[in-house]
Lab assay of single mutants.
Amino acid sequence: MADQLTEEQIAEFKEAFSLFDKDGDGTITTKELGTVMRSLGQNPTEAELQDMINEVDADGNGTIDFPEFLTMMARKMKDTDSEEEIREAFRVFDKDGNGYISAAELRHVMTNLGEKLTDEEVDEMIREADIDGDGQVNYEEFVQMMTAK
């Protein structure tokens, strides 16, 4: 299944994987998964984290390695993001709930994920998604960005 991913997608997933893999040992533990999910405003229980890991832990060693992570991402993409997942993601970014993602809100979430971005990089990300040019990202623009192939 992971063989249907483009090189660009694999590179993006590698970057995402390293955000989860806090200690850089090449595997994601339940603790690391929990840290990232909490930084995104989720509050999973230990059991939920274990279930999430077990779902993709092909070799049964209790952690997720990069090939397992790729399989999980490929699977998720095949079920292409349901509207509800996209709306949920939008809410994570839209901290003040005004229906727009500002540069400050984007920077806040990315920083929580451990991504240190310059102001230019954040502005560039907003510009790429900002179709109507108002300097922020509304829900429609967010959907376009998330579903762009």
Rank of each mutant, 00 (worst) to 15 (best):
A89K: 02
A16R: 04
L117A: 09
D59W: 04
K95N: 05
D51W: 02
E85I: 14
E46L: 08
E55L: 02
E15I: 14
T29A: 12
T45K: 13
K76I: 09
K14R: 09
D21Y: 10
G114N: 14
F17L: 12
T35W: 11
T71F: 02
L113G: 00
D79R: 11
K95W: 10
T63S: 06
I53M: 15
D94N: 11
T29P: 11
S102K: 01
D65I: 06
A104L: 06
A58R: 02
E85G: 10
D132C: 05
F20S: 10
K149Q: 05
E115D: 10
L113Y: 04
Q144L: 14
E141V: 07
E46S: 03
F17G: 02
E121W: 02
G114K: 03
N61H: 01
I64L: 08
L49M: 09
T45G: 04
I131M: 12
F93V: 10
T118R: 09
N54F: 04
N61Y: 08
I28D: 15
D59T: 15
F93S: 01
D65G: 12
F142E: 08
P44G: 02
K78I: 12
F142R: 06
E7R: 09
V122H: 06
F17K: 15
L117H: 01
A129V: 12
D81V: 14
K95M: 03
D81C: 10
G24A: 11
L19C: 05
E7L: 06
Q50E: 11
K76E: 13
M77E: 04
M73A: 13
R91M: 10
Q136S: 05
I86E: 05
I10G: 04
E32W: 08
F66C: 13
I126L: 10
G114R: 06
M72E: 02
T29V: 15
R87Y: 12
G41M: 15
F20N: 04
A16H: 02
Q4M: 07
L40A: 15
K31I: 12
R75Y: 12
T111G: 05
E128H: 09
E32C: 10
M37E: 01
R87K: 07
D23L: 00
A47R: 11
E85M: 14
L49E: 15
D81Q: 03
T118F: 10
E121I: 05
G97D: 11
N138S: 13
A104P: 13
Y139E: 02
V56G: 13
A11Q: 05
R91G: 02
N112D: 14
N138W: 00
E83P: 02
T27K: 05
N61P: 06
E120D: 09
G97I: 05
E141K: 06
V122S: 15
P67C: 03
A2K: 04
G97E: 13
E128F: 09
R38T: 12
I53Q: 05
G34E: 11
K95T: 05
T30E: 06
Q136R: 13
A129K: 14
M37V: 13
D59G: 11
K22P: 00
M125E: 03
L40V: 14
N138D: 12
S18C: 07
T30F: 07
D51V: 02
L117S: 12
N98L: 07
T63C: 03
E7I: 15
D23N: 13
E140R: 02
Q50H: 11
T35H: 05
E128S: 00
E15Y: 08
E8T: 08
D81N: 09
G97R: 14
I86F: 08
V56L: 11
L70C: 04
Y139D: 13
D132V: 08
E55D: 11
D23C: 01
S102G: 11
E115M: 14
V109P: 06
E121F: 04
G99V: 08
E12L: 03
E121T: 01
G62E: 14
V143I: 11
I126Q: 02
D96E: 09
E115K: 11
Q136L: 10
L33N: 00
D134M: 09
L40I: 15
L19E: 07
M52E: 06
F66N: 05
L5R: 07
M146L: 08
N98V: 03
N61G: 07
E120G: 12
L117G: 07
M110T: 10
T27I: 11
T80G: 10
G62Q: 15
R38N: 00
T30D: 05
A74L: 05
G62L: 08
T118V: 11
A129C: 02
D130L: 04
D51N: 07
A47P: 07
A58D: 09
V137K: 03
Q144M: 01
D96S: 04
N54I: 09
I86R: 03
F93D: 14
T111A: 12
A16C: 03
E8H: 08
A104Y: 05
P44W: 08
D65C: 15
L117F: 06
L19V: 14
A16M: 12
E121V: 08
E128W: 08
E141F: 01
R87F: 12
D132G: 13
T45V: 06
D81I: 06
E15F: 01
I126T: 11
M77T: 11
N138V: 12
F69L: 11
F93W: 08
K14D: 12
D132K: 07
M37A: 15
A129S: 12
G41D: 13
E84T: 01
G114Y: 04
D123Q: 02
A16Q: 07
D59F: 12
F93I: 03
I126Y: 12
M125W: 01
D134I: 02
E15H: 10
E7W: 15
A103T: 12
P44H: 09
Y139C: 09
F66G: 01
K31L: 08
L113M: 01
T35F: 09
E121R: 10
E105S: 03
E85L: 05
E83S: 00
P44I: 05
E55V: 13
Q50I: 15
I53K: 14
Q136T: 08
M52F: 01
E120W: 10
E68R: 00
G97P: 00
D123F: 11
F69M: 00
L49N: 03
N43W: 04
G133S: 02
P44M: 01
I126G: 00
V137N: 07
S39P: 12
Y100H: 13
L40H: 15
F142W: 05
R91Q: 09
I28S: 08
A103Y: 01
D94M: 03
E8P: 04
F142P: 06
N138T: 07
S39E: 04
M77K: 07
D57Q: 08
E12T: 05
G60N: 14
I101R: 00
E32F: 07
I86G: 14
G97V: 07
A47Q: 05
R91K: 05
R38P: 06
T45A: 14
K116F: 03
D21R: 09
S82V: 08
A11F: 07
L117N: 02
K95C: 15
E48N: 07
T71V: 06
E68Q: 04
S102D: 07
A104F: 02
L33I: 09
F17Q: 15
G62M: 09
E55Y: 07
Y139R: 02
D51R: 05
G97Y: 00
G24C: 10
S102P: 07
T71S: 06
T45F: 14
M145K: 08
M73G: 15
K95L: 04
G41A: 12
L117M: 00
L49Q: 02
E48M: 14
D51Y: 09
L33D: 00
L40T: 04
G24W: 09
F69Y: 08
G99F: 06
M145L: 06
E121L: 00
T71L: 15
T111R: 01
G24N: 05
M72V: 13
S102M: 05
T30S: 12
E124P: 01
Q144F: 03
K22R: 13
I53A: 15
E128Q: 01
I131F: 13
F69N: 03
S18D: 14
L113W: 02
D134Y: 04
M72R: 08
M146S: 04
M145I: 07
P67F: 12
Q4E: 00
G34Q: 04
L33T: 13
S102H: 09
H108D: 14
E8R: 01
A129P: 13
S82N: 14
V109R: 10
G97C: 09
A129T: 07
G99C: 11
T35S: 11
F13V: 13
L49V: 14
N98T: 06
V109S: 05
D57H: 08
E83D: 07
F66W: 02
G133V: 09
N61M: 03
R87T: 06
A89I: 10
E124M: 03
D132L: 00
M72N: 13
Y100T: 02
K149E: 11
P44L: 12
E46C: 01
I53T: 13
A103N: 14
A129D: 00
G135P: 08
I28L: 10
D79F: 08
R127Y: 04
D23T: 00
A16L: 10
E68W: 07
V122G: 12
G133D: 06
D119C: 15
E83K: 10
V143P: 14
E48P: 01
I10F: 09
P67D: 07
R107V: 05
E55I: 05
G41H: 02
A89S: 13
V122L: 08
E15T: 03
E105N: 08
F93L: 11
L33G: 00
Y139V: 02
G114L: 06
D132F: 14
Q136F: 02
F69D: 06
A47H: 10
A103D: 11
D79I: 06
N112P: 09
G114C: 04
